[in-house]
């Protein structure tokens, strides 16, 4: 039973892709850095290069943290829907297989937040 209703009940999803004016949602979390209380929601063109996301968007979102400047991006571990995943920085979000409302996280080995508290 997908819903309890008195008659036929079918509506579109509120967050379907076509509502985002050419962008798609991408959720990004930084492991062990819960000073950012939740993963971020970003609306991005699927044609954006993954490297551009890392170089231009993530600093605005995570740059406040003193650990951010210390990240060695070549050592970063990536996850997509919780599974290990390797993005190609030179290719687009779409070519990296990122679809609307995908969630990715990154772990920065050796960096575990304020006084190691995972903050």
């Amino acid at each position: 039973m997908a819903v309890a209703a008195v008659k036929d009940y079918r509506f579109d999803s509120a967050d379907r892709l076509e509502n985002f004016h050419g962008n798609q949602l991408l959720f990004v979390g930084w492991e062990d850095h819960l000073m950012f209380c939740a993963p971020f929601a970003l609306a991005l063109p699927p044609s954006m290069r993954f490297g551009e996301l890392v170089d231009t968007t993530l600093p605005g979102a995570f740059g406040y943290h003193p650990d951010f400047a210390r990240i060695d991006w070549s050592a970063v571990q990536w996850f997509k829907s919780g599974q290990p995943w390797q993005p190609d920085f030179g290719r687009s979000l779409a070519d990296n297989g990122l679809r609307h409302k995908d969630v990715i996280r990154f772990r920065t080995p050796g960096l575990t937040g304020i006084d190691g508290s995972c903050s």
Binding site: V3, R10, F11
Partner: peptide, 20 residues
Amino acid sequence: ENEPEKFKQAWLPVNQIYQG
């Protein structure tokens, strides 16, 4: 999972901002 047809219509403020 018990009522996906209901909750897929949720008006999520963040996503609504991104929809303009």
